[in-house]
Amino acid sequence: MTRRREPPNHETLTCYTDYACRLPACRDRYNTWNRDRGQAISAGTWQPLVDAEPIRQHLIALDEAGITFHRVSVLTGLPYKSVRAFVHHDYGHAAPRRRRATPEVAAKILAIGFTDSGYVSPIGSERRFQALVAMGWPTLHTARRAGLHPSNRNTIFRAPSMRAATAQRIAVTYDEMRTQNPARHGVSAVSIKRAKAQAAERRWPDIAYWADRMDVIDDPDFEPLYGVTNRELVAQDANWVMRTSGLDRANAAARLGVSKSYIDHAFRDHPEYAVDTAA
């Protein structure tokens, strides 16, 4: 079970500062950073932010060479939205173009050369399509806006990778369309209703869900738990524990910190995850 299921991202400080996460490891990470910051300030060596203009110019040059913001995001591990913000303001919001950056972020971006345009995972593009469907946008409209051939709008996500330039076009289109009302752009009420019903049936995360999770929307190892109840989650985890460890329900329950009866009820409600054991 290697997937990161829900933000905050527990490898950065944002889970503590922005989401009030208080897991011991995250609290220790923040305290260590804060202590190091205080010592650096006292020593006169603290340099928290640098001018982002060199970053902007480098990103523009990379983009002109075919290395898109999306590809830079993949290569550096930085969120696409954060990378793009060095060159463009945020669509539909008051957030201006970023003019400062941490030295670490600057170093990651400036280290990108001009030889790797490459391919990226299609997962982020697929999630953007799905979120727009949940908003009422049929995939046909999104495909046309992104410059994709309508016949490819579903099959494009079945391949193991896609061109970074295509992924960036979809990301830009998503940023534009997520602030627009489909009814005001030629989508009929019937089509909007049908799109929303399709997204609800398939439990596709919507725009609001991804708004706070843009740092992981392109992460293939992140598993969104949109619309998943705690009982279903326990059923999934118990299924995995019992299959991989050979434990019975009682011991699996102890491993997961729940009662055996809770697992029994979880398997009853979600029989697709049920594992038959002697206990």
Rank of each mutant, 00 (worst) to 15 (best):
P54F: 12
C26E: 03
A52D: 05
G44S: 02
Q47I: 04
D28T: 09
W33S: 07
Q39V: 12
D28E: 08
D36K: 10
A40S: 13
W46I: 07
D28N: 07
P54C: 09
T32Y: 14
E53N: 12
E53Y: 05
D51M: 01
N34T: 04
T45W: 08
N34K: 11
Q39G: 06
G44C: 10
D36I: 02
A52W: 05
R27M: 08
T45D: 11
A40Q: 15
A25C: 02
G44A: 04
E53F: 01
R27S: 15
R37Q: 09
R37G: 03
S42R: 04
P54K: 09
A43D: 14
Q39D: 14
W46V: 00
L49H: 08
N31M: 05
N31H: 13
S42I: 01
W33Q: 06
T32R: 13
C26A: 08
W33H: 14
I55P: 08
A43V: 03
P24A: 04
A40N: 12
R56D: 04
C26S: 00
N34D: 15
E53S: 15
R35I: 10
P24W: 02
W33V: 05
A25H: 08
N34H: 11
P24N: 00
A25R: 04
A52C: 10
R29P: 01
V50P: 00
R37A: 03
W33M: 03
I55W: 03
A40L: 04
R56Q: 13
A52H: 02
W46H: 13
I41H: 10
S42D: 14
Q47R: 11
A43P: 04
L49I: 00
A25M: 10
I41A: 03
V50K: 02
L49Y: 12
S42L: 10
A52R: 03
T45E: 11
Q47L: 11
Q47M: 10
L49K: 11
P54H: 08
D28M: 05
I41T: 14
A52F: 06
G38T: 12
D36Y: 12
W46M: 03
Q47S: 11
N34A: 13
I41V: 15
I55T: 11
R27G: 05
D51S: 14
A52E: 05
T32E: 15
R29F: 01
R37S: 03
R35S: 15
A40K: 15
I41F: 04
Q39F: 04
R35Y: 15
G44K: 09
G38F: 06
E53V: 09
D28Y: 09
N34M: 07
R37P: 07
R35M: 03
R37Y: 01
Y30A: 00
R35H: 13
I55E: 14
W46S: 06
P54W: 07
A25K: 05
A52Q: 07
D28L: 07
A25D: 09
G44F: 00
R27N: 06
P48I: 00
R29E: 00
R56E: 12
Q39R: 12
N31F: 13
Q47Y: 02
A43C: 07
C26N: 03
P54A: 01
T32I: 09
R35P: 01
R56G: 07
G44L: 05
W46L: 08
Q47K: 11
R29D: 04
V50L: 10
S42G: 04
G38R: 14
P48D: 10
S42P: 00
